[in-house]
Structure formats: structure tokens, C-alpha cells
């Protein structure tokens, strides 16, 4: 059984998840090194699916490799690159290798990546993908053809709590919940008020939907600017930008800000953990986790 499911469904423990760095060469040694670095802190880690519309080692094979080195994967599947047949075969491939945590998402557009000339697929959308995964978990493909025994999936999704239309984001999260999502990793959010309204709204209707907001470790004002300008759907308020820019040491200030956002997120209804994206890769992850009051697992 997945540790993520066990913790979220059968305990009140706070869970921590992260992104596995994209694999572009470096072989199994690089996977082993990254798995060893992340394992002490995280319950499960996302095996991404061509993040930001850049080609990398595939989601399924990355998830299998992570598992080989003892790191529990949450295998992401995005709707941008594959049609419904390929998405179902991704899910079955995951199941074949004992991967149960799936996260289904729309995916950044091809224009966000380095091959904007590519054909975008979007044969199905994320809510439909979640529903199809649920149906497969009940023992049949979308066509109705049976799968015996049914694959065992623990389904997740992603929602952006801070992008317009704000009120509707709650309803969209609930649509994914009804389709079969049991946990939601939330997009990076620099608007604590919006995150709060979203979590309250969702928890009111679906108190058993596990929310996992994201915080990101960036180096300073430049990193924050990059999030604001380049990452689709992320807005950093001007006052937050100014606070970091005008600090005597922006690198320290941005860490302080991230810690505040993380602590606030953990107080919100429905929130059962944190997703941490590390863009610094300079050892500050350990410091950040220590500041949150955590110690590494042995």
C-alpha cells in the first residue's frame, strides 16, 4: 500500500511531497542520487510528465526508477501529449509496476515549452482523465472492456487556487473530487487570502478531500520575478515583490516569506500536507525543513 494513501487516509499525519528532478541523461546513478537526497524528507515525490512542455525521460519510466531506489512516486499524467488510449496505457503501465499514486492534470500548453511547434493533443481533459482512472480502478477501460483484476489506484489532481475565475476554482476542485480525486496538490500560490478562501470553500463541501498546497524555494527577487513572469497561472503581488527586493538580504527574506506561506497554509481547513518545489538546489531544502520543525527520516 502506498505510504501516501496510508498516511492521508488512516492517520492525521502531515505529509510532504516534492517534484523529482527531470531526468535528462545521467543514468540510474542520477536517479539514485536524487532519490537518496529526497527520501529523508518526503513521503512521496512526483514523477513529472514533460513539465513545462519540455521533453524529458518519461513519467512512467521515471516513476519505476524512483521506486527501484525506495522513493514512492506520484506519477503525473498530463493531457497535452497523449490521447485517451495512451493515457490509459500509461495508467496500466504504472499499475503493472506497482505504482498506485496517480496525479492527472491538464498540463502547460506547448507554447510554454521549447518546442512550441508541436501538436497539442488534449484529447481529454484532467477531470475526464480522473474519471477514467476511477473507472479503470473499478475494473474496466473507458470502452467498457474489463480489466481483471482491477488496478489499484490512489488518485490525485492539481488545482490552481489563485487563478481566475476565483470562485469557480472551488467548484472545479469539487468536480475533480466527484470524478475520483482523493488528494489535490495545489499550484504555487503567493496570495494567502485566495488560498484560504479556496481551502475553506472546498473543506466545507468535501472535508475528506486532502489538500496539499505548494511552496517553492527560490533564490531571491529574480527567482520570484521568474515565477511571476514565466510560470503560467502564477501571480506574485507587487507588495510581496517589493518586500523581497528591498530587503538587505533578498535571499534570506525570500526564505522567510516561504516559511510564512508554508506555516499559514498548514493552518487551513482541509490541508493535510505541503508540496515543496526546490528551485535552489543549494542545500536550503534541509534548512527550510528544519525551520518547519522537521527532522529527516532515518
Amino acid at each position: 500500500m502506498s505510504v501516501l494513501r496510508e498516511k492521508l487516509e488512516n492517520t492525521n499525519d502531515v505529509v510532504f511531497t516534492a517534484e523529482f528532478p527531470s531526468v535528462d541523461g545521467g543514468g540510474m546513478v542520477s536517479v539514485e542520487r536524487n532519490a537518496a537526497r529526497l527520501a529523508p524528507w518526503f513521503d512521496a515525490v512526483n514523477a513529472t510528465d514533460n513539465p513545462a512542455a519540455h521533453a524529458h525521460t518519461s513519467n512512467t519510466t521515471t516513476a519505476i526508477a524512483m521506486k527501484m531506489f525506495g522513493l514512492e512516486p506520484i506519477m503525473q499524467i498530463v493531457c497535452r501529449d497523449k490521447n485517451r488510449l495512451a493515457i490509459q496505457s500509461d495508467m496500466m503501465g504504472a499499475s503493472l509496476h506497482g505504482i498506485t499514486n496517480l496525479s492527472l492534470l491538464t498540463g502547460d500548453d506547448v507554447t510554454a515549452g521549447d518546442e512550441p511547434e508541436a501538436r497539442r493533443v488534449f484529447d481529454i481533459d484532467s477531470a475526464q482523465a480522473i474519471n477514467i482512472a476511477r473507472i479503470m480502478g473499478e475494473g474496466k477501460y473507458l470502452s467498457g472492456r474489463s480489466i481483471t483484476p482491477a488496478p489499484d489506484f490512489y488518485l490525485g489532481a492539481v488545482e490552481n487556487a489563485a487563478a481566475p475565475p476565483f470562485d469557480y476554482r472551488i467548484q472545479r476542485a469539487l468536480k475533480k473530487y466527484r470524478a475520483g480525486a482523493r488528494f489535490l496538490q495545489l499550484q504555487i500560490c503567493y496570495h494567502p487570502d485566495r488560498l484560504e478562501a479556496f481551502c475553506k470553500g472546498v473543506a466545507e463541501v468535501a472535508p475528506d478531500l486532502k489538500l496539499i498546497p505548494t511552496v517553492v524555494l527560490v533564490k531571491g527577487a529574480k527567482g520570484l520575478g521568474f515565477m511571476n513572469d514565466k510560470v503560467p497561472g502564477i501571480d506574485v503581488p507587487a507588495s510581496t515583490m517589493a518586500r523581497v527586493q528591498s530587503a538587505s538580504d533578498p535571499s534570506v527574506e525570500v526564505n522567510k516569506l516561504t516559511l510564512e506561506l508554508a506555516r499559514h497554509a498548514l493552518t487551513l481547513p482541509g490541508v493535510r500536507g505541503l508540496h515543496i518545489t526546490d528551485f535552489r538546489h543549494d542545500g536550503s531544502l534541509d534548512l527550510f525543513m528544519n525551520d518547519l520543525g522537521l527532522t529527516p527520516k532515518s
Partner: peptide
């Protein structure tokens, strides 16, 4: 542009416009 039938993606801009076509309001 993503032909989404079940609501907006997470890439909607702060002004409510589309991730893919910045000058167009997100259809959702």
C-alpha cells in the same frame, strides 16, 4: 486552445486572459 470541456486550466492569467493567447479572455 486546449479544447477543455470541464473548466479552465491552471494557466489563466491574473487579468483573466488565456495562457496560450494572452490577448484573449479565457473562455472559461
Amino acid at each position: 486552445p486546449k479544447t477543455l470541456r470541464n473548466g479552465p486550466c491552471g494557466g489563466v492569467r491574473e487579468n483573466g486572459n488565456c495562457e496560450v493567447i494572452p490577448e484573449m479572455q479565457c473562455i472559461w
